[in-house]
Design a protein around this nucleic acid. Structure first.
Lengths: 243, 243
DNA sequence: GAAGGGACTTGAACACGTTCAAATTCCAAC
DNA sequence: GTTGGAATTTGAACGTGTTCAAGTCCCTTC
């Protein structure tokens, strides 16, 4: 696992000198990924088009997957930039959720085929591209905070404990939708659109239902379950800042 | 995609003559996968240990993933064989569900690391190993029918329409649990065990709750949603037996 | 038993991701 | 302006999955 600690941190040096080269490689890779897909974009091609040597590309990016990671971060930023304005004019929870999810699909639309390959490495727990990996923490937090925005900007009424967990749950749900979207072979992924339009109200209704007294026991159980679900983040320090 | 139709069906010939060789390769591959994991098990090694040439292995299995597929099918059969006796002595829905899920984890336990790589190709919509692919139909149906058994053998009371969809939903949930399990780095995947023990009662309670009149609207919505979710199986025939 | 043809088998060759020792460039300190 | 070392850059080389043209084997047909 983490036994490559001996090497003096190749890939991803923070120094300023090579930053330009680094960006050049990223730009080229992102473009080629979009143009030709994952497999057709070889490291040799990226290096060639970027005007650097093969080994040099590996100096900045430890693997092809790290380039995918960079691609992923760009997409996430794009989604965020498009989503925030999209929900600015409504305080309806369901509406806000629906719009954010649609923006997700909108932005990813051009990369549907590419995403099929991307999801491969994303599903690997050992891959840095995994949405649950430490390397993805930045993008993940950003995405969760977007759903935090969805909740806090709305006038939804719900169980207070759920309110704290909801953003993360919504993010998880969006991961599920993305997984569905990847498998969606309907024209223009219309089925996913339908799913979003249908699922958002259901989620809204379920969330509001957590205030019902009848459902209190179940609500409690579900909330506890979510706590169990949450994997402790990997860290070498023992104890950490406990819950 | 399916443009390799020109070749005279290499890989997977149904003829009897090479069946022995085929089995030999599968056996060797499964053993090596279990012993050394996915990456360490090279096609050359499989071929060598099986006593055939590299090209010969590719004659029977179009790719390394097809070997994984074979591995997957064995696991599924093993799970089924272990699960059925395990639920024979109780008619409690939650209990039955819990046991089946535990058997799942039991059987897969030895392959936890390997599963991390397996899930990679499993997540790829284009891969035959994907649980949603036509190639996996047999294993999938078998698995769903196991959950059908869980439901029909229990004395659970629930909305009648849900009863029809529940087995598939449970299968889907088990996929989710497997995904969680793959990411579970707690010792002996204890966290997944905990998840199962906690989630089973919640599911049981939720399922029984579908009979509550208060929840009728939400139940309806959720059931319709599931209908939308269901991807139409890929098929060249137009129309099909639509609802 | 010879001929034919399909099933099966082979190993070399290819392209790719990745590694690495060696070279080059750059900049600060003297 | 020379020097030392770190940052950067290079291209050859390795091991892998996969392909393929060329065989070899085995059974049917005459």
């Amino acid at each position: 696992m983490t036994e490559s600690e001996t090497r003096p941190t190749p890939a991803n040096p923070g120094s300023p000198r090579g930053e330009q080269t680094r960006q050049l490689i990223v730009d080229t890779a992102v473009r080629l990924f979009a143009e030709r897909g994952y497999e057709q974009t070889t490291m040799r091609l990226v290096a060639g088009e970027a005007g650097v040597s093969l080994g040099n590309a590996y100096y900045y990016f430890g693997s092809k997957e790290h380039l995918v990671q960079a691609f992923y971060e760009r997409i996430q930023a794009e989604i965020r930039a498009a989503a925030l304005p999209a929900i600015a004019d409504t305080r309806d929870f369901t509406g806000r959720l629906r719009r954010v999810l649609h923006v997700n699909v909108d932005v990813m639309a051009s990369y549907h085929e590419f995403a099929g390959k991307l999801i491969r490495t994303a599903a690997d727990p050992a891959s840095p591209v995994s949405p649950f990996s430490p390397e993805s923490a930045v993008a993940r937090e950003a995405s969760i905070s977007l759903f935090q925005e969805v909740v806090s900007g709305s006038k939804v009424r719900l169980d207070s404990r759920l309110r704290a967990q909801l953003p993360e749950l919504l993010w998880l749900a969006s991961m599920g939708i993305t997984l569905y979207w990847v498998h969606d072979n309907s024209p223009a992924q219309a089925r996913t659109r339908l799913l979003i339009d249908r699922a958002a109200p259901v989620v809204g209704r379920l969330v509001e239902a957590t205030r019902l007294t009848v459902l209190r026991p179940i609500t409690n159980e579900v909330l506890e379950l979510v706590d169990v679900l949450r994997q402790p983040r990997v860290s070498s320090t023992k104890g950490g800042s406990g819950r």
